[in-house]
Design a protein around this nucleic acid. Structure first.
Lengths: 250, 250
DNA sequence: GAGTGGTCTAGACCACCAC
DNA sequence: TGGTGGTCTAGACCACTCG
């Protein structure tokens, strides 16, 4: 890694970062550039140590942090793998809705609208675009055990999701993020949600089978890919009659 | 630590846990028993290594995990300290409400009720008590910049908070958890929240200055101390007209 | 048995902090 | 100046997985 030849010496540069940090950054850049795809194994710790001319412990620390951030998944005896939304273990990783009776219910996504529109100022700001830029708007219902529970309006930067159509969305029973990942090479890394209580408008009430004016949970989500780049903004209305939004505070 | 004298050998016991795990467990038990109080420094890594007859790296791994779980706080050059709710850095650590305009507002807790009551089945279940056991009920308003935003009903296991009165609650401008920690030796470690959208009842509407039937964010929280023991359950109604509940998804 | 991640050691030096 | 956490090394052995 970037370091002068006389090993034990340290650059006193103001932008100094430790070796394991440089390795981590390198690995993240490699993921960004698709060096290894979702689900693939990355090289073993030993091999990376040789490649970077550092000890295995240093590589380990870099990978440890990335595993803690859900970028990589370690599997003892097998290797270290690039995290993927296609893995059942993290299928609806960002969905915090839980039925009151605890049972894990079959979740079905039912998209019914997909068009290219001009970004509103609100959407443009969230996605780092200019107002009027093209974005894709997807509308869908999420059903738990048949019952409609979430109405989502999903905005996507059009240039990243070129060719996305309602047909492709309605294809398999994968999660949206799984499809984005495999078909468009866009991997959602983390997200931030803003929650509010609002009164149902006529359309949402109709779709969710509640009365107009009934309280709904409004969930606005911005989702980020590598480099904290926002690539999705969604506005979801959750019916919380028989479900709740679960959050663990550390 | 528990391990036979012939060092390199490993007990093949079915309940084997690695050395750093045993050290971590020991440290947690020490915290539980008040060996070191909130804000205190724990012994240095070197000293603990000697005490447990392990290398510093092993102690380090134990402490690393505890720091990641917010049980300890590392400060380079100074030492490792027991986390505390009295520290400004984690004053309202569990409060996720944020004003729309981003400004950090002065948050004021205004308790107006504190009585001992018999636990309802719901409260008893949450706190691991029997229905009818004594619990303390505290009601309070939370104001942001003078404006009432949260109405909390807080239930506490009576035996742990003996002597808690409205006067003591109204004392300083510390957070509740800071007071629980210093006055009753009960430290909140983590919590789980269940969120729903509900319609305001008459009392809540009055207190929060909204219309009866207006949508409010219902936040039910169970808070745990060491050993995942539930010690508080609260029902909060959040007015989300000018504030939102912020959640980061990893 | 070969390869991978998981644990552990003993020792080195650096960066930060307080006195 | 001495003590603390932060980084890094070189090497050992263990536990798990798979062919």
């Amino acid at each position: 890694m970037t370091r002068d030849a006389s090993r034990p010496s340290r650059p006193a540069s103001p932008t100094f970062s430790p070796l394991y940090r440089q390795i981590k950054d390198f690995l993240i850049r490699s993921l960004e550039q698709g060096e290894w795809g979702p689900g693939d194994a990355i090289p073993s710790e030993g091999e990376l140590a040789v490649r970077f001319s550092v000890s295995q412990g240093t590589v380990r620390k870099a990978i440890d942090e990335m595993a803690a951030e859900n970028l990589l998944v370690r599997r003892q005896g097998k290797g270290t793998f690039v995290a993927t939304h296609s893995d059942p273990r993290s299928f609806y990783r960002f969905l915090r809705l839980v039925p009151d009776n605890g049972k894990a219910m079959p979740t079905v996504s039912d998209p019914f609208y997909c068009e290219s529109i001009a970004a509103t100022p609100e959407v443009a700001a969230a996605l780092g675009l200019k107002a009027g830029d093209r974005v894709l708007l997807v509308k869908r219902l999420l059903r738990f055990d048949g019952e409609p529970v979430v109405f989502d309006e999903i905005y996507l930067a059009a240039d990243l999701f070129d060719g996305l159509t309602l047909e492709r969305l309605r294809g398999g029973d994968r999660s949206l993020y799984s499809l984005f990942e495999s078909d468009f090479g866009v991997r959602m890394i983390n997200a931030e949600e803003h929650l509010r209580a609002v009164a149902a408008d006529a359309q949402s009430a109709e779709l969710l089978g509640v009365g107009s004016g009934d309280p709904l949970l409004l969930v606005e989500r911005t989702a980020y890919t590598y480099g904290n780049k926002p690539v999705e903004w969604r506005r979801g209305l959750y019916c919380t009659r028989h479900h709740y939004y679960r959050n663990d505070l550390g």
